[in-house]
Design a protein around this nucleic acid. Structure first.
Lengths: 347, 347
DNA sequence: TCGGTGCGCGAAAGGGCTTTCAAACCGGTT
DNA sequence: AACCGGTTTGAAAGCCCTTTCGCGCACCGA
């Protein structure tokens, strides 16, 4: 048998060394019934001695499946990074592996999905996809698809059935938690610094206003954007226009950081004079010198849910998809919220 | 011919539709010499109509090569993210594809490398590896390996030959740029907030001290750590111990942010009273409300260099490895550096 | 001693793709 | 009809692994 160019041992090498046939080796290595205990031991030892590791390509060709879950992500996005970590564990627990396809400036989402399909991933997990509903449904038709952090995509006919599954955190619950917390501290007038024009920002804004109305506290919204810069500008406007409010509800942690920084530079004390909340419970919020009160979106829970949805559709081929899983967010109270100036807690 | 469970069209389907044999289809699709122009056109059309995409596993099995470059990274690390983006383009230009293996809490570097080897990657690119020299050399012996951002790893015998290639930015140049800049502004006494115990931190510290000595300005180093928290603590000590210095050289941008924030909270104006520099030119440094003077490490250049090194070793099997490529960093002057209090520029 | 009963094993097919190789074909000349 | 040199073609082998099928063997009870 001619030596391969790569020089890596194959199953035949193991078989030869163990004095046994290839087939037996394959069974023995995977603990399948068939080979005797003694044969299995010999095979394992031979494999160990040779440093044999099965070739994924050959294996998936023979198995006619890859046990691969394809993930598209924006590599610079910290929340995506966190999700990937959790997806990794969740997939591993289920005996699957992840293939990561980063979406970059030079490589769009479509190209990323294409490579995933070329690797014959069994399901697609798209983090914050930008594709149109049409395209998402197209991908879903080829391969079960789960989408993170965007609204459910019903078809152009508005029909709810089919299409990708959606996993997201409930904005309604998250903002209710924030509003309740601030109201309980005694704040009567909340200002929301909104995250711009995206779906999620709009949902958060609506959820904020609903929660404030429900709780009976005053609510005002300032349009901003999704990053620190936006928080800075919004806060500058707030400070000059009519003096600072007692509490600011930022659309996310990055915006909150801009808010905090601007207040600090203006000599406004947080939380003594103004309370600030973020959203996402990102690394930023946890930093020792920031300690931002924020809303955690349970990335681990979202990851597990997504993997579960994907696997359910893999196992049950007739499964329709089109589900919408809402994960329960939770409030993380840190050092940027307190009762309003001079007041005591109201409960 | 039985339909596959996956339902995806194979090369046989294309062949049947084009009324031609599988072999011809393979040649035609890849533009290899053989099939006539007319045949090629027919094949391309059939493939298009069926939505055919070749199966990577089958293809790499037959080719006996994968054209895959394996990358390990810490998914939360922003600089790694930037490198991955650049690696992606560099690899694509060379006709290769990337396989990303994230190193997480639950999955160590060794496991990540293992999966890369199982996918039969042709080379390994390790971002900020933590493995011991021994282990790195072991991997390199199996597959050409390029290592980012750590010192060259000579063998236990101290011999320079062989072992992984190394790509890194020159700390000596980077810190000389910083020191020159501050000295030119008129600062006479610089304080370095050091990044802890890692290789890179040690190199930066040494480079800082060498550059200051060379330029003839005073230099003091405070041991800290690699994150914002470390910057905060170090700055608090600086402030209480003997009053703030006129310029702080932080080991990286995250530390610099902690420094900035602490100064701000203490009412110290930046850059009027104290100048601060970072290192990495990360997203953080570029933020509109931070605008930190920092050192860029040319991630694009590093990525291209790494891919080049890897490909050279793939093409020339006898290549020894063990090279050390230093990329030239550059200074990005923003708003956190200025002449010291009350002084004018000295040149 | 013999026919049955399992168990452990080897042989071989098959998965999708690439590549090789011998055969077919071209139109014109001997 | 055999042959020319060059271009196309189809069949088949091989890449590494998994899984099925049936055989041979040892052992059992009769």
């Amino acid at each position: 048998m001619p030596q391969l160019p790569s020089g890596r041992p194959t199953i035949s090498d193991v078989a030869a060394r163990a004095g046994i046939s290839k087939g037996m080796v394959s069974l023995a290595l995977r603990g399948a019934p068939g080979p005797s205990a003694e044969t299995t031991a010999r095979v394992l030892r031979a494999a160990e001695e040779l440093g044999y590791r099965p070739d994924r390509a050959a294996s998936s060709l023979a198995l006619r499946r890859t046990r691969l879950l394809g993930v598209t992500m924006t590599v610079r996005n910290a929340f995506h990074a966190e999700l990937v970590e959790e997806l990794q564990s969740a997939a591993e627990d289920a005996g699957y592996d992840l293939v990561l396809a980063p979406v970059t400036r030079t490589r769009g989402e479509r190209a990323a999905v294409e490579t995933l399909l070329d690797s014959r991933c069994e399901a697609l997990l798209l983090l914050g996809p930008e594709a149109a509903t049409e395209e998402l449904r197209g991908w879903d038709a080829r391969t079960p698809t789960v989408v993170f952090g965007c609204r459910p995509r019903t078809g152009p006919d508005g029909g709810a059935g089919g299409g990708p599954d959606v996993v997201r955190a409930s904005e309604a619950v998250g903002l209710r938690l924030v509003v309740e917390h601030l109201a309980a501290l005694g704040h009567r007038e909340l200002v929301h610094v909104s995250g711009g024009s995206g779906d999620i920002a709009a949902d958060r804004r609506a959820a904020f206003e609903a929660a404030a109305a429900e709780r009976g506290v005053g609510a005002r919204t300032v349009e901003a954007g999704f990053d620190e810069e936006a928080g800075v500008l919004a806060t500058q406007r707030l400070l000059t226009a009519q003096g600072p409010p007692t509490a600011v509800v930022a659309a996310n942690d990055r915006v909150a950081l801009g808010v905090l920084d601007t207040l600090l530079r203006a000599g406004v004390q947080v939380p003594q004079q103004v309370s600030v909340t973020g959203y996402d419970d990102s690394q930023l919020a946890r930093l020792g010198h920031v300690r931002l009160t924020s809303v955690g979106q349970d990335p681990a829970g979202q990851a597990r849910a997504a993997v579960r949805l994907a696997l359910e559709r893999l196992e049950d081929v007739e499964h329709a998809g089109g589900r919408d899983v809402l994960v329960e967010p939770h409030l993380v109270v840190r050092d940027t919220t307190a009762p309003p100036r001079g007041e005591f807690m109201s409960q």
